[in-house]
Design a binder for these strands. Structure first.
Length: 422
DNA sequence: TCTGGGGTCCTAGGACCC
DNA sequence: TCTGGGGTCCTAGGACCC
């Protein structure tokens, strides 16, 4: 029987992409370095020296070009294959230090440290091993909730030891939260911070003391959970097995404005191929395919180019040729004449498990039976004064999960039961 | 001139279906 | 002077995360 309090650690790799590049090029150490997004568009990672210049996160390259040309700053194109490989090694090393691990992003993971009598010591050891074996510097925050662990990791970045253990709820925690701007809290972005400021909420402590009903009203359960977590009440458990993806997107910005429909068309064909590969790798089939194109989002006049189009499949698919054929048919709808496109992409939606999708209502062969079943179910329900549980349209799949999971156990998708209700 | 990509969740209204 | 209700899908927008 486990009675120990929850203890979470958040391990965050410092300036991860830059740290990866430095592993292979020691000349980059001590220098101001940034790593750029695709197309070398904008800054996605900064070394502490670059932050000190200061170089802001997300700033476009052309705005900091002078720093680069005058030798004050090194700007590197990104190499995601490399970062993914290093990330994997870091995560494997850290895994052994907790009872369970949640890989939260390419450069962050949570560990469950419940029951560990000395979480501080354990985390110092973890930090040392990652630094020694792999060469990646990390910051570690420890706390009774994920939100507090995350907050603690931000504080850890400013400590030479690189590890910070957040106090348990009480006066010490209040003193700590009072020094944290509300916008630094996990889940509070720029917009919410702005609204909170107008309410007079400036620090994490102000937010922790806010009536959770007010937050719930404005931001739903997501907002209320932030308050609970700040108070030390865990609302977010560790997700050790990542849930299956609900959508798969492949999109890119073009290096320049594209005006030829044929160019957009071939770009989309490429995106579809990559998305289909991803779906197959995850053993998933898509019920629908969303295509989108957009103009330059920094240019208001280009907004007329923005368009989306959704195609739904009678039978879910991850077959490239089927997706391509469907996409090709709606290109005229999607691409208006005289477009000036800057971006395009595809999203696979309504992902179903490859092995179960054949049994769903989607299969056109089963459609009449599906209707028959529902009619029968209506009859049964009417007799017992119950509302029917509908699977929705019989022409489409349930968009979000296999049908079998959505129906009440009484009315499963076992087709052999249909004759019996007649 | 030049401004990332890939996700999540939530809300809401209209079309459509039975 | 009354108009069904419940459900899904689509689109769109608003937030957030890394």
């Amino acid at each position: 029987m486990e009675l120990s309090q929850p203890v979470y650690a958040l391990i965050d790799c410092n300036a991860f992409y830059v740290s990866c590049e430095r592993l292979f090029n020691p000349l980059l150490r001590q220098r101001a370095v940034v790593v750029l997004s695709n197309n070398d568009g904008c800054v996605v990672a900064r070394s502490p020296e670059a932050k000190a210049i200061p170089i802001a996160m997300g700033v476009p390259l052309f705005q900091i070009k002078d720093h680069v040309t005058q030798g004050r700053l090194v700007a590197l194109s990104s190499n995601y294959t490399l970062y993914g490989d290093i990330s994997h090694r870091v995560m494997s090393t850290l895994e052994q230090y907790g009872r369970a691990q949640e890989v939260y992003s390419i450069d962050e993971c949570f560990l469950n440290l419940a029951g560990d009598p000395h979480p501080d010591i354990t985390m110092h050891q973890a930090r040392h091993q990652v630094g020694h074996d792999i060469g990646i510097p990390v910051s570690i925050g420890i706390g009774p909730t994920k939100t507090l662990a995350k907050l603690a990791s931000d504080l850890a970045k400013k400590l030479p030891t690189g590890v910070y253990n957040c106090p348990l709820p009480g006066p010490a925690l209040a003193t700590l939260l009072e020094r944290v701007p509300v916008g630094d809290v996990w889940g509070v972005g720029a917009r919410i911070a702005e609204t909170l400021h107008t309410w007079g909420i400036r620090t994490a402590l102000d937010l922790a003391r806010l009536d959770r009903g007010i937050m719930q009203n404005k931001y739903g359960v997501t907002g209320a959970r932030i308050i609970e977590e700040l108070r030390g009440q865990p609302c977010h458990a560790l997700e050790t097995a990542p849930p299956a993806k609900q959508s798969i997107t492949v999109s890119r910005s073009f290096g320049t404005i594209v005006t030829q429909q044929a160019d957009v068309r071939s770009a989309i064909a490429n995106f579809i191929e990559r998305a289909a590969e991803k779906a197959r790798a995850q053993h998933r089939c898509a019920s629908s395919l969303l295509l989108f194109v957009a103009g330059n989002r920094f240019d208001q006049r280009a907004a007329h180019c923005d368009a989306t189009h959704t195609i739904t499949f009678p039978v879910p698919t991850n077959v490239t040729s089927e997706l391509l054929t469907a996409a090709d048919r709606c290109m005229p709808t999607l691409l208006k004449a005289n477009g000036r496109w800057k971006q395009a992409g595809v999203t696979l939606l309504g992902l179903l498990d490859q092995s179960t999708q054949q049994q769903s209502f989607l299969d056109p062969i089963n459609r009449p039976r599906a209707q028959a079943l529902m009619t029968a179910v209506d009859g049964i329900n009417a007799k017992h004064g119950r509302a029917s549980i509908r699977p929705g349209s019989t022409t489409l799949s349930s968009r979000w999960q296999p049908l079998a999971n959505r129906c009440s156990p009484r009315y499963t998708t076992n087709w052999d039961e249909v004759p019996r209700v007649y």
